[in-house]
Amino acid sequence: MTGVTVEGSSIDSTRPSIARVYDYLLGGKDNYAVDREVGDVFFRDLPGSVAIAFANRAALTRAVAQIVRTTGVRQFIDLGSGLPTADNVHQVAQRHAPESRIVYV
């Protein structure tokens, strides 16, 4: 297996990761050539997939902001969070309520 070791985990840069493919679709920088190859299939064969990825991120942002503004909820668990990108749950929640706490899984 080729790759790098990060905090005791081995990252195989020769096998695609859906989190890194999603990062690529959103215009991120945390992906490898193998992830971009898979992402390019989405761009070529499923052109609406990029719009769906951005719409999904926008829905997450709106939902977290609405919850924080209209309820007393200040603790969030983000399951399947993938790689960090702009407007993560903690950024959105803490923008409206700095005391918000988030766990990423």
Rank of each mutant, 00 (worst) to 15 (best):
M1G: 12
M1Y: 12
M1C: 10
T2P: 05
T5G: 10
T5K: 08
T5C: 05
T5S: 11
T5W: 15
V6D: 05
E7N: 06
E7D: 05
G8I: 02
G8F: 02
R15W: 04
S17C: 13
A19H: 07
A19L: 04
V21P: 07
D23I: 06
D23E: 08
Y24V: 12
L26V: 11
G27A: 13
G28L: 01
G28Y: 04
G28W: 00
N31W: 12
N31L: 02
A33W: 02
A33T: 05
A33R: 12
R36M: 05
E37Q: 15
E37H: 12
E37L: 10
E37F: 09
E37T: 15
V38P: 06
G39L: 11
D40P: 09
V41G: 08
V41D: 07
V41I: 15
F43R: 15
R44N: 07
R44W: 03
D45Q: 14
G48E: 06
S49L: 13
A51Q: 13
I52Y: 11
A53H: 08
A55S: 14
N56P: 03
R57C: 11
R57Y: 02
A58Y: 10
A59E: 02
T61S: 06
T61G: 03
R62P: 00
R62H: 12
A63I: 14
A63S: 11
V64I: 14
A65T: 00
A65H: 02
A65G: 14
I67D: 00
I67E: 00
V68G: 05
V68C: 03
R69P: 00
T71N: 08
T71P: 03
G72A: 10
V73M: 13
F76C: 11
F76D: 03
F76M: 08
F76A: 06
I77W: 14
D78T: 14
D78I: 10
L79P: 05
S81K: 02
G82K: 05
G82D: 10
G82T: 10
L83M: 09
L83Y: 07
P84G: 04
P84I: 10
A86F: 05
A86V: 12
D87L: 13
N88Q: 04
V89E: 04
Q91F: 00
Q91T: 09
V92G: 03
V92R: 11
A93W: 00
Q94W: 03
Q94V: 01
H96G: 00
A97G: 01
E99Y: 04
S100R: 03
R101Q: 15
R101Y: 09
R101L: 13
I102D: 08
V103C: 10
